[in-house]
C-alpha cells in the first residue's frame, strides 16, 4: 500500500576522477551539469523537475554512497521517519542544505547495507530547456544519449528478505517481480512505488552494500540503438546489449563509467498497478530473465560490482 514515497529522487555515486566522470555522465549519457561544489558535481536529466538527481563525488573507491527517494511532503516525511524508528531502524537526520537546495533528509541503512534517504523538498527548476507554459516537445541542445530521467538502481546485498520487508511494510513499495530458487527463496526482487515496473531492485549476493547499476530512461528502442552507437564512438567499455530483459521486459544496454560503475539506459518495460500478481522468474531461467535474447548469463553481470 502506498505510503507517500513518490520516486527515486537522487543517487550519489563515487568516482575516481571527476572530469573523466563528467565526460561519461554529461557528454555521453547527456545529463545536464547544474552545479559544482568542492569534490561534488550535481547533474539532472532534462525531463526532471527537481534541480538535480545525480551527484558525483570524487573518492578513492567507486560505488554508491546513497540513493534518495522523494516523498509527497514534509508531513509524509515525518510519518515515514517515525515508521522507520518504530520498525527498529536507526535514522540519521541530515539538516536542510547539506545537499545544496535540498530540504532535510532522513537517512537509514537497509538490511543489505545500502544507505537510503527520504526527503520531501528540493529546489524545483522545472524541466530543462523548455518552458512550463506552452512547452516545446524537447530541448534542442541536448548531448549524447539525451537521457530523460534517473529511473532506478539495481543493488546487490545479502539480506533480500529483510530489505523486502522494510520497503514493503514501512515504505509502502510493492513487489512487482521476483526471482526465486527451487526452495522458493527470493534471489532477486524488483520493487516499485509508482506505475513503473521497478524503482529499485536487489539481487542476492554474499557481500553487503554493492552497487550494480544506476539506470536512465530513454524513450524508444531506436534511442537504445543510438546509445549503442555512441558507446562505440566514445570508446566507452560496453558491458552487454543492446538487448531485452525478461524481467520487466525493458530494452536495454549496459556500459561502464570511467571508474567502473555500471550505467544502464533502457526503454519500454512493463507497467505496474497494485492489484497485479507478482511476476515470478525461476532461477533456472535466470539467463533468459536477465538477457531475453541470449538466454545466457554472462558472468560479469553477477560478479562485476562496485
Amino acid at each position: 500500500m502506498k505510503k507517500g514515497v513518490m520516486r527515486p529522487g537522487h543517487v550519489q555515486i563515487r568516482v575516481l576522477d571527476l572530469d573523466e566522470a563528467l565526460d561519461h555522465y554529461r557528454d555521453l549519457l547527456g545529463l545536464i551539469e547544474v552545479a559544482r561544489e568542492n569534490d561534488r558535481v550535481f547533474l539532472k536529466a532534462w525531463t526532471e523537475v527537481d534541480e538535480y538527481s545525480v551527484v558525483l563525488r570524487q573518492a578513492d573507491t567507486a560505488g554508491m554512497d546513497f540513493m534518495g527517494f522523494k516523498v509527497l511532503d514534509e508531513g509524509t516525511l515525518d510519518n515515514l521517519r517515525q515508521a522507520l524508528i518504530d520498525y527498529g531502524v536507526a535514522v540519521q537526520d541530515i539538516p536542510a542544505g547539506d545537499l545544496p537546495n535540498c530540504g532535510r533528509r532522513v537517512r537509514f541503512t537497509a538490511p543489505t547495507g545500502h544507505n537510503f534517504e527520504l526527503f520531501a523538498t528540493k529546489n524545483q527548476t522545472g524541466k530543462w530547456g523548455i518552458a512550463d507554459r506552452n512547452p516545446e516537445a524537447w530541448p534542442r541542445d541536448l548531448k549524447g544519449m539525451k537521457a530523460t530521467r534517473f529511473d532506478h538502481c539495481l543493488l546487490y546485498g545479502d539480506d533480500i528478505d529483510g530489505v523486502l520487508d522494510l520497503f514493503v511494510e514501512v515504505l509502502g513499495f510493492d513487489l512487482a517481480e521476483q526471482v526465486i530458487d527451487p526452495e522458493n527463496n527470493k534471489v532477486g526482487i524488483f520493487l516499485t512505488c509508482s506505475m513503473k515496473e521497478h524503482d529499485v531492485a536487489f539481487i542476492k549476493h554474499e557481500e553487503k552494500d554493492k552497487f550494480h547499476h544506476a539506470s536512465f530512461y530513454l524513450n524508444t528502442w531506436e534511442d537504445v540503438l543510438r546509445a549503442a552507437d555512441l558507446i562505440s564512438m566514445h570508446d566507452a567499455p560496453l558491458d552487454i546489449g543492446p538487448t531485452r530483459h525478461g524481467l520487466t521486459h525493458g530494452q536495454t544496454i549496459y556500459f561502464f563509467d570511467p571508474s567502473g560503475n555500471r550505467t544502464e539506459v533502457f526503454a519500454g518495460g512493463d507497467y505496474f498497478y497494485p492489484d497485479q500478481k507478482v511476476v515470478t522468474w525461476e532461477v533456472e531461467q535466470l539467463g533468459k530473465a536477465i538477457f531475453y535474447h541470449d538466454r545466457q548469463l554472462n558472468e560479469r553481470f553477477l560478479s562485476v560490482l562496485t
Binding site: L16, A62, P237, F256, S259, G260, N261, R262, S303
Partner: peptide, 25 residues
C-alpha cells in the same frame, strides 16, 4: 570487468617491468 579500476576483478601482481598507473579503487 569494468575496465575502470572499480570492480577489482582484473587484479594482477607485476613481478617484472615498469608501468604508469591511473587511480585504482
Amino acid at each position: 570487468g569494468c575496465k575502470g579500476g572499480g570492480c577489482g576483478v582484473c587484479k594482477v601482481r607485476v613481478v617484472d617491468g615498469s608501468y604508469a598507473a591511473k587511480p585504482m579503487s
